[in-house]
Simulated scan of single mutants.
Amino acid sequence: MRRTPSRRLFAASLLVASILAPMMAIPATADHAVVADRFDKDKTPPDGLGRKLTARLDKAVEKVRRQAGIPGVVVGLWMPGKGSYVRATGLADTDTGEPMTTREFVRIGSETKTFTVTALLKLVDDGRIGLDDPISAYVDGVPNGDRITLRHLAEMRSGLYPYSEDPDFDHDLLSDPDRYFSPEELLEYGYRHKNTFAPGKKFEYSNSNLILLGLVIEKVTGHRLADVIERRVLRPAHLRHTLFPEGSEFPEPHPRGYTNQTLSGEVADSTDWDPSWAWAAGAMISNLHDLHRWAKIVATGELISPRLQAERLKTLPTGHPGTTYGLGIFKSDGWIGHNGSIPGYETVTVYLPSKKATLVVMINTDITVGEQEPSTLVARAITEIVTPKNVYSRPLPPS
């Protein structure tokens, strides 16, 4: 979920090149061969869904990639009892022509929220915090903090102004994308504005909510958020290729990321921008293998109690048809999970309980097409073919 800088900066996390050198975006009509790949330990054949269906998916993914001008796409679709579809197409680097592969690490943006909220819910299961505790019990200075609960924050129903919507924040970030932002600095951008509504009255996607939840986790545990997520979430989930970076570090291999979220509006390489500005809302990195595992874990509640998972899945209306939001998780026409969008990268990681199916999409651009996120276009094209009764179609939130 995101908006543009001055017109579109909104989502989860960033990373980037030391120089914002304007580049030409890959032409929408560029012709690049589909690269079929798979993980060394993945025993499922890439063409497990059969030749005809695989050919339809190849054609659909490549069509969207070209029309949306996406440099590179990675798709993983797993449908128990039917097979799987694992593909990479296009380029990881438009300068060198290096092809995209399924082994890439990517910035997962707002999918970080699923990890942060899972860490929070584990503290609830431990009896160390309560979902209906006011944020004022943990963090001072929050506007209306005595009425805003941890549940409101996780459900995006707090009414706190999104710090990433502040014009000064946009300018400060894009003027120096290598800059480190502390959580407190981020919140101050939002606190300059009045709350937009009373707690619980409606839905408004706001990264301010997750920054506060990250601070709660740190205060209660006495440890850094990254360490808590590593110990309480990543290790139990056996996610060995997922991390919460301390700075702009980025494991290899990874694709270059391309964005037009710049002061000039020109396309730039955002690969190494510092993600601190998104912190608990979107700074994490992962790959296809781990996101495949994580989709089911989040949707089925493997790491938390059944009681709390039931709470998590009580999703509420967002004002966007077909999409509801719960405790750091959304439902889109039956698919459960989250997406991520940051300058240079977008992801979708969702699970469909009715078919026990998992879909993961990773791309190396966040440049919208007709106000549509390119990752949504890819996910929609795939689900229209394989689950026509459950089409993923999360709309772009209003800026």
Rank of each mutant, 00 (worst) to 15 (best):
N207K: 07
S248W: 10
T387G: 04
E230F: 06
R240F: 13
R179E: 02
V75F: 05
L263M: 15
L215R: 15
K43Q: 14
E373P: 04
Y161C: 01
I342G: 07
M362F: 12
L186G: 05
K356M: 07
M362V: 07
N195T: 01
V348H: 01
K219F: 10
Q372F: 10
T101R: 02
A357R: 03
T262H: 02
K331Q: 13
R65P: 03
S305Y: 07
T102H: 06
V350A: 02
P398A: 15
K355L: 12
I19G: 11
L303T: 07
F115M: 15
G326N: 05
G72H: 01
T376N: 07
K201Y: 09
L120E: 05
T387D: 09
P353T: 01
R7E: 14
I304S: 04
R66G: 00
V61M: 08
L77I: 04
E165L: 11
K355H: 14
H241Y: 10
M100C: 06
H171R: 15
E371M: 14
R56P: 00
L212R: 08
L131S: 09
F244W: 12
R87N: 03
M284I: 11
F39D: 12
L174Q: 02
K43W: 14
T262C: 05
V16L: 15
G370W: 09
N339Y: 01
V35A: 02
G200N: 05
F203E: 14
H223S: 12
R293D: 00
V228L: 13
A283I: 07
Y180T: 12
D42I: 04
M284L: 14
E311L: 15
T101F: 09
V233T: 08
G322W: 02
T318F: 02
S84T: 13
K314C: 05
V216C: 08
W277K: 08
F105I: 10
P71M: 06
L120I: 08
L308W: 11
L91V: 13
